[in-house]
Structure formats: C-alpha cells, structure tokens
C-alpha cells in the first residue's frame, strides 16, 4: 500500500519516541507540554508545505521554488495589510491562497506544457519569485508595528489551548490525507509517478496531473506565506531562504521515494515533526549555534540512512519469502 501508513511509518514513529526519550534524559524540560506546543507551532508551516512538496515528488517532480513563492506571497499580503489595513483578514487569506495557486500554476505550466525538467523550471522560478520580492518591497521590511493586530495575532490565537496555526496544519493534513488516499485524482497522482508509461496507457492525462500537483502545492505555499509573516510579525526580502530544502528533507526523512510513485502524508508529517525536534533540541541541550547547522544535516542524513537500510532489509526478506513460496 502506498497511501495509508504501514510498518515503515510505525518504525519511524518508534524511532522518534526513542529520540525524544534520549533528549529528555539530558533535558527533562524537553517533555514540558509548553515546549511540545512550541515544537508543534514551529513545525506546522513546514508540515503544510512539505505535504505540497510530497504531492509533487510523488509525481516524479520537485519544487525548489516553495521558499521563494512563500516569501513573495507573504510580502504581498503584508504590504497589502500595511497600506490597506481595512481589508478584512479572511480576504487577506483568500488572496494569499490565490497568489500561491497562481505561482504554482506557472511552475505547473512550464513543467507539463513546455516540458522543462522540474529542477530547472523551479530553480528558474525560485530566482524570479525571490527577485519579485525585492521589486515589490524595494528592499525594505514590513515590521510588526506596520501590521494590524488582527493580522499579526492570527496564527497565535488559540481555541482550547490549540493555536490557529496548528488547526490549519491539521486541516491541511486531513484534507490531503483524504485527497491522496481516497480520491480518484489522488490515485492518479501515484499512478503517474509510479510509471508514466503505464499511466498513459490506461488513459490518464499526464499533463493535467502534473499541472494540478504544482498548482495545489502553490496554494498551500501561499497560505503558508501569510501564516509565516504573521507569525514572525515581519516580512523581509530574505524570508524563508533555504526552507525549500527543509520541505524536501521532511519528505525524504518521512520515506517518500525521491524518484516518485510512493510516499505518505503520515510519513511526511512524522518527517517534519522529526526535523522540528532536531532543531528545537539542539538549542535546548546547549549545542553551540555554530555547530547546529552541521549537526542538523548529519542527523537528517543519519535518519535517511536508517530508513534506507530498513527498507532494503524488508525487500530482501520479501524476495526470500517469494523464492521459497514458488
């Protein structure tokens, strides 16, 4: 099965629990509920965008422009809020999603219609989108006092102790869990990534599926752009630089095949959560900030290696079972 969680996700879950246990031995405050809520808040945006990335990687593509489109959308709505504070928040949210869909659909068109390889396409649009951030903000920031309170406070507002940010992330998780595992189009996305030719032979429209994946990812990214600038109460030209690689890391750590065709929403959620823990715990256990980036990279690579080894062993077991059966 592709879409619903299985052994691999379960193993990864155990692995995460183990990591949490080890960290808490050294820093008992890591287990505080408050700290946990912080980690969830910190990983909410990563989880959302990583799910968009998942959809694209499953089709056999990749989107390197997510950080730039996030920044462009974020800057656009921040400027809008600064200059037209009377625009209601739900309109702002709709606008951020619309801009995201538009940016994503440009990627989709270039990949599916112009047939430019995804890496090249999104490298190009990454520069363009990032460049447009500079153009519209003219090199300046939009900082906290220039935003309305409703704008700035939205991600933090909580209901029953759970913030809007976490609610929205949960909503995206549930929506895309259903979309990818229970709908016809979701199945077709896995089909296209699993074997393009076979999918084409059963009458699936490859171009349509590719276009759709990039566009939907763009929509999520747009929403994430608003949430990001509101949460950090700042829109800068450098917002979220390097975030694209985090989303890809969350996918790969979560067991998504980088060549397409397999990967689950649950896996990606765990992957993003794992990365959140790593980032958070390094600060808590007082690792020097100079070392953090290198150690983060090392731990992510380590998780991927473990994942790959487990997978290989499973496959060998299956092969042995199969030759025994026949």
């Amino acid at each position: 099965m592709l879409v619903l969680p299985q052994k691999r996700e379960f193993n990864f879950f155990i692995f995460i629990i183990l990591i949490i246990f080890i960290i808490s031995l050294r820093t008992p405050s890591f287990l505080d509920l408050n700290n946990f809520m912080d980690i969830l808040n910190d990983t909410a945006i990563l989880t959302m965008v990583a799910i968009g990335q998942l959809m694209i990687i499953v089709t056999g593509g990749i989107d390197l422009s997510v950080d730039a489109s996030l920044a462009l959308t974020g800057m656009s709505v921040a400027l809008l809020n600064q200059h037209y504070p009377e625009i209601p928040l739900f309109i702002i949210i709709l606008i951020s999603i619309t801009i995201g869909l538009l940016l994503g659909s440009i990627n989709g068109l270039l990949v599916s219609q112009a047939k430019i390889p995804p890496v090249i396409t999104t490298l190009g649009t990454m520069s363009i989108y990032r460049g447009l951030v500079f153009v519209i903000c003219k090199g300046t920031w939009v900082s906290a006092h220039e935003m309305t309170e409703a704008f700035r406070e939205f991600p933090r507002r909580s209901f029953l102790g759970i913030s809007n940010l976490i609610f929205i992330a949960l909503l995206i998780i549930v929506l895309f869990l259903i979309f990818l595992s229970l709908t016809k189009t979701g199945r077709e996305i896995y089909g296209v990534g699993g074997n393009k030719t076979a999918a084409q032979y059963v009458g699936i429209n490859l171009n349509k599926i590719n276009y759709l994946a990039y566009t939907l990812c763009g929509g999520i990214t747009g929403l994430a752009g608003f949430l990001w600038v509101a949460r950090y109460a700042a829109a800068q030209s450098e917002t979220a630089i390097g975030f694209n690689f985090q989303t890809i890391a969350a996918c790969v750590v979560g067991g998504v095949s980088i060549t397409g065709g397999s990967g689950t929403v649950i896996g990606v959620v765990l992957g993003a959560f794992f990365i959140g823990i790593v980032y958070d715990s390094l600060t808590m256990i007082n690792v020097s900030p100079f070392w953090q980036m290198a150690i983060q990279g090392f731990i992510i690579l380590f998780a991927i290696i473990i994942n790959t080894i487990m997978d290989k062993r499973n496959q060998q077991l299956l092969l042995r079972k199969r030759s025994f059966n026949e």
């Binding site: 592709l2 016809k184 896995y190 699993g194 074997n195 076979a198 999918a199 032979y201 397999s262």
Partner: peptide, 18 residues
C-alpha cells in the same frame, strides 16, 4: 509499460477503470 510496481495488486487492477 504495463504495471505500476510500487502499487499493490488492487490499485493496479482498478487503475484502468478508475
């Protein structure tokens, strides 16, 4: 050209009549 190896039997068989 025929199968999607990473999908299971059920998903492969019904892909043509989705």
């Amino acid at each position: 050209q025929g199968t999607i190896l990473k999908m299971n039997i059920k998903e492969n068989v019904t892909l043509s009549i989705i």
